[in-house]
Nucleic acid binder design. Structure first.
Lengths: 199, 199
DNA sequence: ACTATCTGAATGAACGTACATTCATATTTT
DNA sequence: AAAATATGAATGTACGTTCATTCAGATAGT
């Protein structure tokens, strides 16, 4: 690794600028300034503005998926796996706010144009969840009528919306561990009081 | 109402174009063409491009909130209210795909710049959910440890992610009623098989 | 009933600017 | 001193917005 890795400096700067202004409202000159680099230098490392965005996704999302997979693999009980997934997801957002915001907003925005890409990586992330469900169903822990394809989206969506709330609001109202526990409990136990559960 | 309401024609055209290309990649000339109107005509009805987007939100979101509130009010049982909310939300998305896509992607994108706006209207929508929870808690149907502020986001997020899936994919894999039932059941009953419920 | 005058909605070519990208030149590294 | 890396002013263009002009239809005058 070079003493000053320009590639990395530019990526880090771009994450900050994109998070603050959004991709289309960010200027190359701003990113250059934030990275302490000349405008032209950016084009020595990236083909164009859009390429910077793509690279952010490619380099960062892979790391996240690998990390979550690895952590989940350490646990046996599918119930605990779910709770752990929730915690890890929210922690990642908390620890990488700018990145989280860029992924949330811009990956969505661009999804039409990079559908294949989103589909591949994002599906991989979601499938960590559906795998947990199938494992739980095989072990007789989760109900058979739970559709893993719907569950994975619902569970991810719940976490994602919670993250968005954090990313957009300045102060957090709830702690990560509280939110992770609440959300996984919603999905595991439901919200009905025990006596009322019919099934 | 005039024979040809240009304001409306332009809004409808813009929803189609924004949904297809995204706000920043949409050209005024495209919207004009789609609306069968000259470029300049658009500026007789709107101050600028951004104003078109704002107007879409202002005119359409209000209608949606009003409709959902009204439908929910007809029901007593908080359990049924939740399921109905899920169904209505997903139905709205299904019946107004382009609008749903614009709201999902662009409202999020712009949220930093129209925070006050999103906060107001969107919070109103989310609060329909937390009201249902509080009502259920008062009636002794929902557990007291459910935090309405977290629940509303989790529930909305689950529906929203399911919608995004529909908006972005060409063919629907699940029926609206199936998804609505699954998701509300997740939240009401959880996914554990009955024997395993500890609490 | 016919003509003249007025009106303002609609048009689309022209304008001006903002900004991504390039490249001739400078600096640093080997 | 050659090669590699970095610079930032200059370039070219895409596109939001403007505005002089048109013209269908309304109103008034004869």
């Amino acid at each position: 690794m070079k003493v000053t890795d320009k590639h990395d400096k530019i990526i880090k700067a771009a994450i900050r600028v994109f998070a603050k202004k959004g991709f289309f409202n960010s200027r190359i000159s701003e990113i250059a300034k934030e990275a302490n680099v000349a405008d032209g230098t950016i084009y020595l490392y990236f083909n164009n503005k859009y390429d910077i965005l793509i690279t952010i996704f490619e380099e960062e999302i892979g790391k996240i998926i690998a990390k979550v997979k690895q952590e989940i693999a350490k646990i046996d009980d599918p119930r605990k796996k779910l709770e752990r997934f929730a915690y890890l997801h929210l922690r990642l957002v908390e620890d990488n706010r700018d990145l989280a915001e860029v992924i949330q907003v811009e990956l969505r925005q661009s999804s039409k144009f990079m559908k294949e890409y989103r589909n591949k990586k994002f599906a991989e992330y979601l499938n960590i969840i559906s795998q947990i469900i199938r494992q739980g169903q095989n072990q007789g822990i989760f109900r058979q009528d739970v559709m893993p394809g719907i569950f994975k989206r619902a569970f991810f969506g719940a976490l994602d919306e919670m993250s968005r709330f954090w990313v957009l609001s300045t102060r957090k109202k709830y702690r990560v561990s509280t939110a992770a526990k609440q959300i996984s409990k919603f999905f595991l136990d439901g919200i009905l009081i025990p006596e009322l559960k019919a099934n």
